[in-house]
Design a protein around this nucleic acid. Structure first.
Ligand SMILES: [Mn+2]
Ligand SMILES: [Mn+2]
Length: 561
DNA sequence: TAGTCTCGTG
DNA sequence: TTCACACGTTCCC
DNA sequence: GAACGTGTGTCTCACGAGACTAGA
């Protein structure tokens, strides 16, 4: 039976899961191991209640479930459904349970009965559930079946049968192959059906897929695993073990290599925090991440290798492709020169940015300081908005919508993408050079206004990596298009597109319009004790050089008497 | 028993 | 389960 | 001033059920 309306289909989640299975089988047949292909084949032959219950378990948190929490009207009796899986290894009945699993499955009152003597011996009989869990974890007990947990406490188990799902890893791999990442999950389908998320429709050909080789999938999973362990790693040994597990050689695939480099960078940050200078340095040295060289210079300095630090800093200054690096290294240079015994050259640093000073009384309730200043500056004839990065990014995203969602090979491979997969790659612009040129040309012809307004109407609510729909009322759009000259937009868009990751943030907090004079200004708000960040300074500098009116508003509080 | 939190749901 | 921003502290010139 | 670490709001939704906790 087919359900035309997905929201009235009681098996919607199963159908969605099977769409993924079909997708993977069709596009990845050459990258599947025999046992993986087997799983897909056998799954299709399994009775529907068993398939459905499996998918319910896959979508839920954790791997262990008690039968009385597996009641679904469309499935019926969970024991009957799972009986059909007896000859697979997909689910185990009555599995051994860790302390965490046991505490996740049983209520506090049930644990109190089942483990009464154990809890009493540990002295946490009346404590909170969290404290009891901690107490038992500290005993380092082996996993046990429920019956054995009860026996060890001299009690009979009081709850329903328990099952363990054994195919989590396989399902994660299938999910990764479909989405090309692990942060999207099975709920994307129903969220799209509900209209919670609307995705741009990009035509996908039957061969579009996120990965081209099985090693790429394995590498992704490996890096992901390492990153998860990094979050848990605390001691120095753990870092070294982790570092040894990261491949020495760069991956040939740019996307994976970016992930490898980023992981090495994070590892380096952890090592720095533990003052493991040589570990940190080798992390940064192996990493091509954008900030890696800056940190490497700093680590060399912190480890008193001043000459090496100075040399690397000089090398970095000859490579002007990375603005943020230039800025950071220029700031370090005088100190490094002094440490090396050279005469430090004074660097001219007077950006000449318009400065506003205001004194505002401390607000009654907690209001963001940007909002206070916005209200203070706004007038009837000169409305102001708190936009931060939203305005310029959104205007850019609306103007270049068709280019961003252009069906460039490899950029789109499933229906739930917020944007092209290569958005942050170095060659993103180059691969769309002529398309972007056309859109930028509209800033000369004046056509851009219609394009932006048109996409604002047509694409309203559709997810985009640049358009913040919630922060862009039509009134703001109208004022922006009326008051900001095309040349200013071009200056901003060029910089944004030249380094999307580095330049999509750091834009000033406020924008104020004088529609009668078709004039505007940008304002970065700074409270007491706050200072301009690097990316904010770089935008200010860029705006200054292109004649974009921008100022910094420093807020002071009146001295209390 | 009321408030808070986590999880499951479509 | 990140990212961008603000905020607070420490250290050094 | 420079550098570092931390806190905060935002994160892909709205809503309800159930579990836990603290305090009456
Ligand atoms: Mn801001
Ligand atoms: Mn600000």
């Amino acid at each position: 039976m087919r359900y035309s309306d997905p929201l009235n289909n009681p098996w919607y989640y199963l159908d969605n899961f099977e769409i993924v299975l079909d997708w993977v089988r069709q596009r990845y047949h050459d990258l599947l191991l025999p046992e993986e292909a087997d799983f897909i084949r056998k799954f299709r032959q399994t009775p529907r209640p068993a398939r459905a219950l499996l998918v319910r378990m896959i979508m839920r948190k954790g791997d262990v479930f008690r039968a009385d929490k597996l009641r679904y009207p469309e499935i019926g009796c969970p024991l009957a459904a799972l009986a059909a899986l007896a000859d697979t290894a997909w689910v185990d009945a009555n599995p051994a349970l860790t302390v965490d699993e046991l505490f996740g499955l049983l209520l506090r009152s049930e644990l109190g009965q089942l483990l009464a003597p154990l809890l009493a011996n540990t002295g946490v009989a009346g404590a909170t559930k969290a404290a009891q869990r901690q107490a038992l974890l500290a005993l380092n007990l082996e996993p046990r079946r429920l019956l054995q947990w009860a026996e060890s406490a001299g009690k009979q188990p009081v709850v329903d049968p328990i099952y363990r799902l054994n195919i989590r890893a396989l399902c994660d791999r299938l999910r990764l192959m479909f989405f090309g990442n692990l942060h999207q999950d099975w709920t994307e389908f129903v969220l799209a059906d509900l209209g919670t998320h609307t995705y741009e429709a990009v035509s996908l050909d039957a061969s579009s897929r996120a990965f081209q080789q099985r090693e790429q999938i394995d590498a992704y999973l490996h890096l992901h695993q390492c990153r998860q362990e990094l979050d848990e790693a605390t001691d120095a040994d753990a870092l070294n073990i982790l570092l040894a597990r990261i491949p020495t050689e760069p991956y040939p695939n740019d996307w994976l290599e970016e992930r490898r480099s980023k992981l090495l960078f994070r590892l380096g940050r952890h090592a720095e925090r533990q003052q493991q200078w040589s570990v940190a340095e080798s992390c940064y040295q192996r990493s091509a991440y954008r900030e890696a060289r800056t940190r490497r210079i700093r680590v060399l300095e912190r480890n008193q290798q001043y000459t090496a630090a100075h040399e690397l800093a000089q090398l970095a200054l000859t490579d002007t492709t990375n603005d943020a690096e230039q800025q950071a290294v220029l700031r370090m240079m005088p100190r490094l020169q002094r440490l090396c015994g050279y005469a430090s050259k004074k660097t001219a640093s007077c950006p000449g940015i318009v400065r506003i000073d205001v004194t505002l009384p401390a607000p009654a309730q907690t209001t963001r300081i940007e909002e206070e200043v916005r209200q203070h500056l706004a007038e009837d004839a000169a409305p102001a908005f708190y936009v931060e990065n939203a305005l310029f990014n959104s205007l850019f995203g609306l103007l270049c919508w068709d280019t961003l969602f252009a069906s460039v090979p490899g950029a789109f491979f499933h229906p739930f993408q917020h944007g092209p997969a290569d958005l942050l790659h170095a060659d993103f612009r180059k691969r769309r050079q002529s398309l972007f040129a056309e859109h930028f040309d509209q800033l000369h012809t004046g056509q851009y206004q219609e394009t932006i307004r048109c996409n604002f109407e047509r694409k309203a609510g559709v997810l985009s990596p640049f358009v913040y729909w919630g922060a862009l009322p039509e009134q703001l759009l109208d004022l922006a298009l009326d008051c900001i000259p095309a040349a200013h937009l071009k200056a901003a868009f060029e910089r944004l597109l030249n380094d999307i990751r580095g330049n999509r943030s750091g834009l000033p907090d406020l924008i104020q319009f004088w529609p009668e004079q078709r004039r505007y200004r940008l304002i970065e708000v700074k409270g007491p004790g706050d200072r301009l960040q690097d990316n904010q300074l770089r935008w200010l500098d860029h705006f200054n050089r292109h004649g974009v009116p921008v100022s910094v508003c420093y807020v002071q509080r009146p001295v209390s008497s």
